[in-house]
Write a protein that binds this DNA or RNA. Sequence first.
DNA 1: ATCCTACGATGGACAGAGTCCAAGTCAAGA
DNA 2: TCTTGACTTGGACTCTGTCCATCGTAGGAT
Lengths: 136, 136
Amino acid sequence: MSDLLERLRARGWRMTSQRRVVAEVLAGEHVHLTADEVHARAVARLPEIARATVYNTLGELVALGEVVELSTDGRAKRYDPNAHHAHQHLVCSNCGIIRDVHPTGDPLTVLPPEERFGFTVSKADVTYRGLCPACA
Amino acid sequence: MSDLLERLRARGWRMTSQRRVVAEVLAGEHVHLTADEVHARAVARLPEIARATVYNTLGELVALGEVVELSTDGRAKRYDPNAHHAHQHLVCSNCGIIRDVHPTGDPLTVLPPEERFGFTVSKADVTYRGLCPACA
DNA sequence: ATCCTACGATGGACAGAGTCCAAGTCAAGA
DNA sequence: TCTTGACTTGGACTCTGTCCATCGTAGGAT
């Protein structure tokens, strides 16, 4: 966590209290929060932080590769702080809960060259869908 | 295409001019349109069709399994009329263009039981990302 | 062919998520 | 301590999608 703050500082990030709080909120809970949920938790620590600042900071963390942005349901994007371990996501079709999962092999290898249409394919995002134990 | 209208009629769909136009727009172009793009094309054929009607009809087509809903970018959902052939999607990270692709094997098989956490996993949506020839 | 009626269409208001921007504030180097 | 440009603020705005009361009509019944 303080690792994250270190890395950000090393990249020339101006360390404001707002950015610190957002980074701490993300690093502190290994769940997949929406921007508004991050904002709510940030407000608990720093009451005056603006929604726009949370959006800005999340966008910067995504651009720096420290956080992964998910849009599993077409509603609010969710932010995954676990960006340094390759993984995929398992989503409950009913309640929307998300788990990180680790399939075997590299999903990129199953896309043959003739199915790439000249694209430079760099990654594959897999969303497994089904019902969680509570909803089944 | 008329196949689609046949199937819908067989399922008790009331065949209104609005629904026919939406179905024709989707079946006529094998691209991945947003709801507003569908609406724009529908208006060209039936000027008075309402946005709400397009949304309603698209939702029904998805519920009937005739169309697949995609949210690849967290912006507008896109509608894929190619629902009867299993496939995945290849998206350009720069311009957003989408191609249907066919990876080898079944993506579900690479998720081992101990990585399913008690979920009843029913499908896997794979989004390959990279740069298209024009953007590379 | 006409009538009935429940299902579908309309369009305007509303809601949720995210972006923009002008003005004010402050982190950090000089 | 001063300076300055990067950052924050908050409110207006945009985009996407939903809701709902009212109106219209497809298609079965007569």
